[in-house]
Design a binder for these strands. Structure first.
Lengths: 226, 226
DNA sequence: GATGCGGCTGAGAGCCGGATGAGAATCCGG
DNA sequence: CCGGATTCTCATCCGGCTCTCAGCCGCATC
């Protein structure tokens, strides 16, 4: 199994290389985001361990770029725990798993094994539900075939909902995942953004389930007035 | 086998970790419900041991949330035996097995092994009884194939009844579980909501057992006028 | 057939969850 | 450093949900 470790902190990189090699992996190391991306593209690795904070190109951008180029190799992200970067962001970018520093080496190994067991999954290029299509890589949204421009928040909200097609998602869950969990945001923000989103994708495509949350809905073709 | 232990009492958590690691399991520990939920989502565990009384998010809520998100990992619940929390509640939330403190470590191991042997079972996504289908995740109800919209209370009531298919459920039990136990609600409320529900799902599908409670009933196909 | 008890139901008061418009604060590109 | 876009808060409004009450019905027992 070939692994790519992208980590600029030399000590940690060396430790990881040694540890993983001892487990029988073939390990390459890149010291910044740009190099990491290059190597990931052409290296034929089975998985990648990727720090978030990197010189030249952040870990987020590396994953995003890879996914945009349709490379699906499993990515395990590492980040300092200072709240500035957060797990949801990482996973949204297309990472497969996430670990905050400091982490136990045993946990890292376990997660990595889990990833390798799952393997590179062919991912849907675009998420779709009804006549709403969302492309996370290109950050584009099509409703009934025509493009709609969304702000960052609106996009994140729609993405979270469309990954749970048809299911009811509670406001607290949305707050936790679409908004930064650390910041205390008034729950009302969700309602406000639901409102914005509805104006853009069409009122009927986003249903309120009173007391429970929100749910994407399929609007019958022909009826669709966005 | 990877296990997640969610337990806030440090002594017990440490004891479990040590004991289970000695048995050859890889063990992670979370100290509150919120962390536990996060880790359960992304950690790729084979099973979870979950205390009921936890800071931030109760064990019940953790399981409920996991199940709502279609994670089926086996869950073994632990609770103090003080009657406040009870076994039925735990199992209703979607736990797979239940142990009251104090428990013997040998019993815990045995139950855990049994769970792991069964593994994560793909669960029925929808609950059904007769021609009534209820999908907790999408929060939808179909009666004889056509959708029926229910309010929060009505939905909770039907969900509770349909989880006890065909059994008689007393009014006090309904009050305890469908209504907030802390608030004193007049018992009459149950009758009122049974009435509402009957109007929506069809009179015959919800029987009164005089002096005992209510029971869902199967109406013969063809007869069914909702 | 009278009486009593358990269950049913219509009406209505109050409350709560959600929607929305306006505006402050912040970010970002030029 | 400015101006527009974006994010978020706040106050307010609205509709419908929840629950209580009071009276009625029907079963059951005598």
């Amino acid at each position: 199994m070939r692994l790519l470790v992208v980590e600029d902190e030399a000590r940690l990189a060396a430790a990881l290389r040694r540890g993983l090699q001892a487990e029988g992996f073939a390990v390459d190391v890149a010291a910044d985001g740009q190099d990491g991306l290059e190597m990931a593209r052409h290296g034929g690795y089975d998985a990648m361990i990727l720090d978030v904070m990197l010189p030249r190109l952040s870990g987020y951008r590396v994953v995003r770029q890879l996914r945009a180029e349709r490379h699906w190799l499993p990515v395990l992200m590492l980040s300092a725990k200072d709240g500035e970067y957060d797990q949801a962001d990482g996973l949204d970018c297309g990472a497969d798993d996430y670990l905050t520093k400091p982490f136990s080496y045993v946990v890292l190994l376990a997660r990595l094994r889990a990833l390798l067991r799952r393997g590179a999954q062919a991912r849907p290029v675009v998420l779709a539900f009804g006549d709403v299509e969302l492309d996370p890589a290109e950050r584009r949204v099509l409703v009934a075939g025509t493009e709609v421009t969304l702000t960052t928040r609106e996009f994140a909200l729609l993405e979270y909902l469309i990954r749970r097609p048809g299911q009811v998602v509670s406001k607290t869950e949305l707050l936790d995942h679409v908004w930064d969990a650390s910041l205390e945001t008034a729950p009302n923000a969700v309602e406000v953004y639901v409102g914005y989103l509805r104006r853009k994708i069409g009122r009927d495509r986003l249903e309120t389930v009173r007391g429970a949350g929100y749910r994407l809905a399929i609007v019958p073709p022909g009826t669709g007035v966005s």
